[in-house]
């Protein structure tokens, strides 16, 4: 479903921040994306959620060559991808409910179904009391949960999360990891970029390691406990 061949990426005319990446993901894969700050994790995520086209190499997503895909094609591919952004990117003028509903509305879902699903999911992530609250009045962890709810509301085939548990306490972090794993079990491909060694240790999955824009071999972290 995802295939990278010798992919390089740069921002504008700047230096190349990712070099010669080659890897592939199959339906049902679960990968961590690890690496020190500045290694290029978020940049690789940008390629994966189609915010960026590669500056060289071949990126194929859902059997579509990204370099040559039209804007319209990219839009429909993106509907199959759910993203939790590192900086959340919630719309501040919309309520939590409307933020989470957005991907459904963009895809043209029926309004009666939208409300029901969204309220249910927000209740599940512990925000039943905050449906009509603006993001600005939510705590960091609450915003993160809204962002996660927005990413999974459409049951995407590919779920990308950039530091999804950074602002959450241990218990809540594990609960959301559990959600990701449940989605993974029903076939969703999951990629989680993170620094959180505790998380990786307690929930072992194969990891892609980025160092200064280069990818090491995929490693399977040994389960602890």
């Amino acid at each position: 479903m995802v295939r990278f061949e010798n992919v390089g990426m740069r921002y504008g005319m700047g230096p190349e921040v990712l070099h010669d990446l080659s890897f592939s993901l199959k339906p049902g894969d679960f990968r961590y994306l690890l690496g020190p700050s500045g290694a290029g994790k978020s940049s690789l995520m940008r390629l994966l959620y189609l915010a960026h086209r590669p500056s060289r190499g071949l990126v194929t997503m859902f059997d579509t060559d990204i370099s040559t895909a039209s804007r319209k094609t990219l839009a429909s591919l993106r509907r199959r991808i759910g993203v939790v952004f590192q900086e959340f990117r919630l719309l501040n003028h919309l309520s939590a409910l409307d933020n989470v509903a957005l991907p459904l509305r963009v895809a043209g879902a029926r309004e009666d179904q939208v409300r029901e699903h969204v309220a249910e999911l927000l209740a599940w992530v512990g925000l039943a009391e905050h449906l009509h609250v603006r993001p600005a009045t939510l705590s960091g962890g609450q915003k993160q949960r809204v962002a996660i709810a927005r990413a999974v509301i459409t049951r995407p085939q590919l779920l990308l999360a950039d530091e999804p548990t950074g602002n959450l306490d241990q218990a809540l972090g594990l609960r959301l990891m559990h959600l990701f794993e449940e989605l993974n079990k029903i076939g969703t491909t999951v990629v989680i970029a993170t620094h959180n060694e505790n998380l990786v240790a307690s929930r072992p999955h194969p990891a892609l390691r980025l160092t200064a824009g280069e990818l090491g071999a995929t490693v399977t972290l040994p389960a602890t406990g």
Binding site: Y49, L50, A51, R71, K72, A75, S76, R78, R79, I81, V83, R89, L91, L102, P103, V106, A107, R150
Partner: peptide, 13 residues
Amino acid sequence: DIIELLHLIGARD
């Protein structure tokens, strides 16, 4: 920023 986000969650032009 809003428009970029809309595009990222799959909105067409």
